[in-house]
């Protein structure tokens, strides 16, 4: 008899499970080494609690009622449950807090390889450690975690969630128009940015050039210099925070591992300041991401400033397989 399972879910058989377990144990080794104690939280939470994240694309997708009529939801990531845990269970403890996790989360994505509706995430959260030192520590753990699973060609994209919006404010774009432009950037639509920018009235030609060029600026340290040359003080102010994060990361000897990206935006609503995305040259999808969420803990009644990252375990596994194929000289 054939019995189906819901779309976006899958069974894992022993051969695959062995390899996934090896990845998990390599990651846990790194998390332990940096003092990130592993925690687990319930897969189901009160919908109300998860809504504190206010994220557009990762709203919980699976909701149901329990026997008392309370609305529950399957978590869509681990950051919000950990924010809840810290604000509830560590109210009187002395920060900083370092936690790691490996757990399942759920999103209503269209299923494809490496993107299922039920998926495993592994990551860390560092709470109570402000930028830039806290951010640099998280990036260091991330790079070591990638090395530990053999993905030493993987690169961490580093951007700033508020950079482009601040630049729009600096050059005098009004809020409604800025919202439209930021929405185009979030959709990775550089053609749309140009269309929206050209709708602005009375925009200085130099500011126009800066607004159009900046989202495509990505690379090493030279990117910040090029941006300053392009846009002067306005860009200087908008990129200050990114610059200080980059310097802290470079001080840890990780400059080669980081790709500065002035056009980076992540679709999770709670990010403020530094944002991260992880790329491996052998795989067309991002391996994970993260960043600072200094404002999120306030919604849980604490003022801890925090940063973290999450890696998709299944994608790490696919990237390992693809890297092996590349190393053997096989087709992509």
């Amino acid at each position: 008899m054939i019995h189906p399972i819901p779309p976006g879910t899958r069974d894992i058989l022993p051969d695959e499970m062995r390899e996934l377990r090896a990845i998990e144990s390599s990651l846990v080794g790194v998390f332990d080494e940096f003092g990130y104690g592993q925690v687990a939280t319930p897969t189901i939470e009160y919908d109300e609690v998860l809504k504190e994240g206010e994220s557009r694309d990762t709203d919980p997708a699976y909701r149901f009622f329990d026997e008392r009529g309370d609305l529950l939801a399957l978590r869509s990531d681990m950051t919000i449950p950990i924010a809840r845990l810290v604000s509830t269970r560590f109210r009187d403890a002395e920060p900083p807090f370092r936690f790691s996790y490996i757990g399942r989360a759920y999103r209503a994505v269209s299923p494809q390889r490496g993107q299922m509706r039920e998926f495993m995430q592994a990551g860390v959260e560092l709470l109570g450690a402000p930028a830039p030192a806290g951010t640099a520590e998280v990036i260091e753990v991330l790079c070591k975690a990638l090395d530990a699973v053999g993905l030493n060609r993987a690169v961490v994209g580093l951007g700033d969630a508020d950079l482009y919006r601040q630049l729009l404010t600096e050059v005098g774009v009004e809020e409604d128009a800025a919202d439209m432009i930021v929405a185009r950037l979030a959709a990775h639509d550089l053609v749309g940015i140009e269309t929206e920018v050209d709708r602005l009235e009375g925009l200085d030609p130099a500011a126009r050039k800066t607004l159009l060029r900046l989202p495509a600026m990505r690379g090493g340290a030279e990117v910040l210099e090029q941006a300053h040359e392009l846009g002067g003080d306005a860009v200087e102010r908008a990129t200050q925070r990114l610059q200080s994060t980059y310097e802290a990361v470079a001080a840890k000897g990780l400059a080669d591992r980081v790709l500065l990206d002035l056009g980076l935006l992540r679709d999770l609503g709670y990010y403020t300041g530094a944002i991260l995305e992880v790329y491996d040259p052998a795989l067309g999808h991002i391996l994970g991401g993260g960043g600072r969420y200094d404002g999120l803990m306030k919604r849980f009644g604490s003022d801890l400033r925090a940063a973290g990252f999450a890696l998709y375990i299944e994608r790490l596994h696919i990237a390992q397989a693809e890297e092996e194929r590349v190393a053997r000289g096989g087709p992509r």
Binding site: R18, E19, A22, I23, S26, A148, V149, G150, L151, N152, R153, V155, D256, R257, P281, Q320, E323, E324, V326, A327
Partner: peptide, 12 residues
Amino acid sequence: MSPRVVAGPTGP
């Protein structure tokens, strides 16, 4: 199986 380390430069 332990994860395999692939030689190669970081980056593109």
